[in-house]
Design a protein around this nucleic acid. Sequence first.
RNA 1: GCAGAUGUGGCGGAAUGGCAGACGCAGCAGACUCAAAAUCUGCCGUAGGCAACUACAUGUGGGUUCAAGUCCCACCAUCUGCACCA
Length: 799
Amino acid sequence: MAKYYDHEKIEKKWQAKWEDAGVFKAEDGSSKPKFYGLVEFPYPSGAGMHVGHIKAYSSIEVIARKRRMQGYNVLFPIGFDSFGLPAENYAIKTGTHPAVITQKNIEHFSDQLRAVGFSFDWSRDIATSNPDYYKWTQWIFLKLFEKGLVFRANTLVNYCPHCKVVLSNEDSQGGKCDICHSDVVQKEKSVWYLRITDYADKLLEGLETVDFPDNVKQQEVNWIGKSEGAFVKFSIKDTDEKLEIYTTRADTLFGVTFMVMAPEHPLIDKYKDKLSNFDEVTRYREECAKKTEFERTQLVKDKTGVKLSGISAVNPVDGREIPVFIADYVMMGYGTGAIMAVPAHDQRDWEFAKKFGVDIIPVIEGGDISVEAYTGDGNMINSGFLNGFTNKKDSIAKMLEYLEEKGIGKKGVQYKMKDWAFNRQRYWGEPIPLIHCPKCGVVGVPYEELPLTLPDVENFEPGEDGNSPLAKIDHFVNCKCPKCGGDAKRETDTMPQWAGSSWYFLRFCDPNNDKAFADPDKLKYWMPVDWYNGGMEHVTRHLIYSRFWHRFLYDIGVVNTPEPYAKRSYQGLILGPDGDKMSKSKGNVVDPMDIVKEYGADTLRLYVLFMGDYGAATPWSENGVKGCKRFIDRFAALVDIVDKKPGDTSLEGSLHKMIRKVTEDIEQMKFNTAVAAMMTFINEVYANGSVTKDEMFVFIKLLSPFAPHICEELWEQLGGDGLVATASWPEYDVEKTVDKTVEIAVQINGKLRATVMIDKDESKESAIAKGKEAVADKLTGNIIKEIYVPGKIVNIVMK
RNA sequence: GCAGAUGUGGCGGAAUGGCAGACGCAGCAGACUCAAAAUCUGCCGUAGGCAACUACAUGUGGGUUCAAGUCCCACCAUCUGCACCA
């Protein structure tokens, strides 16, 4: 069909025309209604774009183009998340500065994005590694520091021995380093944290106000992992020490028969002199320290532990003396790092008690505790003042009342989410703007000195001691304390990859501002993001982090909405043609640029949206691509039959049905059925042998968000006004989407027996009569019931 | 273990409780061609039948209903996330 168009030529032609006309430029403060559509900006990797990018961007692309045609002032920006390890690793290997390779990759990526014809507003292009940008990342960090949300702690952290970096929980899911996938180990380190747990409740509450898919919300709720319970203090016999635990079942206190501390619990060293088996305890603790978190949690195995011989605890409600153990099934990182064990009603405690021969006292009636722990509801027994309570809500409330009255316990809340480990011992990231002064402690870099720029270095390799490469740059490290003027040293760690992307959507509102991260009026006009599409893999990372930063900025009064994203959607993975995840090692990676070259950008865009349910993982099919190409060719060839039958109105109903279907399906991200509706229409046009020019204009408009280049070309050929990109979205007439006569099914006892044509307004009686006539020979029994569903079905129930 | 999702032809997938399989791919047959590709036309869930038609079919087993892929109960399988969370 090359006789109709040359895709390479027309794509370049129209991309240039759009650029010249500036049709995708968002207008600040326009009186039109605004629409802010956002896609997750890419990390500009050397490999260039992946088909996954195309799918992720095409959805909001279609919506943005449709919104423009519907009269909205649309902000659809793009930029680059350009700090990160791959550029740095490449720099280590080749000696090229990360800034150089990053710039090259950004240009390459930009060219590719333009070649696909995405309607981004390129005038708002940003890069997180640009000092004009990270100046404001540092500014926000200093605000967090000022408000006490930055703290330093010496703790066990996730550490990747291969990358030589500290990782956040989010970056070490499953015990594997997110960057190199090697095993993460636990290491004692002094690290900077952001107090994201202070925002746990706000992040939970915010979820109730936004339009996110339920599974996305649920995953965030689980990740935050709020649990309500109580902190209870147990005395250690013959000492003044108290051992505090966290429990969600304070009402089972009478069933506590032992306690367990995490092997890392700091109190253990205090008991050194009292312990008769300190050597054994030490050996066990060393054993545990060697294990990775993965080994410790992933392998559900036999309970291990050691009894602390020589000390015992006292049950605060009945004074019973109970043994204390250390065991690695208790984690230092959750609650207080110690638990009260109720073996009768907790399976883990039950297993431990069986193995170590500890008493099991039931306090809730039910189950068979000789077989397993009973975790259901029941009457309280063996529980002093709680005896006779029948539901856990009441018994917990009563126990809490008692604990608070006696001063031995109080209500408490715990989260699974941990504070955000925020420093990396790496070069290619935002320098953390803090100064260590021997006199004043930690002091923030003064705002007027921002950006604190990355100094040039010779060697990008992290130090063997786990120090950042910046630590070797004396002129960077040595500085004066802004408070006292004395000699001081700069923090040499950099921020994690996630910092720059935690607020980039704000910068798009005003990307060139050098007085503020964005002008308040512009923020007020554009925010919140109306529709944000991205990957499921970012739900517990980027999405949480950016919501946290944004909420903080709201609390200090510099942004105007508590939540940054009004609506979130996600795309399903594109799998390789073999149905496996695309990966270089499997050799099943499809390069989108090969598709653009061979079939054209329009075909690629159409295919990624047509290939399947947008939210589901779908394998790539080259034949499917060809099918989309065939459709576009058939579409282009329609010019031959425009007005073949002048004044022909036979397609009117089909046309309005298509407008309706495409208009509605796009809003629900049902792109595959929207495209199918257009394919159905084109089949009808060819069957009809003619299409009017006005019908073609409508068809071109509907297809233009998906396949904009060929649509502009045909629009021009047929003499359309201006650009399709700025034409108005077609309206449909509901009346015209309804057929005057319809074929309905005639069933006997729910089974299809015939079909019959009736008028759309046919009366019930008449429809049933026509139905009966069609199946007259089969009406052999007594008719019990006759059902008519207007325009759908006649069902005759016979005995 | 917990949370969420999914299960429909050879494949990707459609179906506000109302004719299951839209649309696309692949396949088969035909037209055009010296031929192939491209293009066009027709067929295309399974079984039986020349056919009209009939029976069976949406992971399995029950149920509700005039009517179930869709709703309810139980189970199986797969995927994703979290996971000794006290």
